[in-house]
């Protein structure tokens, strides 16, 4: 049963990390615009133009 000394804190820390990650994402406003986010991934405007290799943005 000594294994519990490791397992339980591990479980709690992992769960807590998940919770912390969620709270952080909430705080940084990632749920403010749920509709827009899925479209933003399709936006390739930040890529450099394939033909011209210079920065003219």
């Amino acid at each position: 049963m000594e294994i519990l000394v490791y397992l339980i804190p591990t479980a709690l820390v992992l769960g807590g990390a998940g919770l912390a990650a969620f709270l952080w994402s909430l705080k940084s406003g990632q749920y403010d615009d749920i509709e827009g986010a899925k479209w933003r991934i399709l936006d390739d405007g930040d890529l450099q133009d394939e033909n011209t290799n210079n920065n003219n943005s």
């Binding site: 403010d32 615009d33 749920i34 509709e35 827009g36 479209w39």
Partner: peptide, 10 residues
Amino acid sequence: IERARLNYTS
């Protein structure tokens, strides 16, 4: 302009 962010939901 530092930031322009459009909220598509609202």
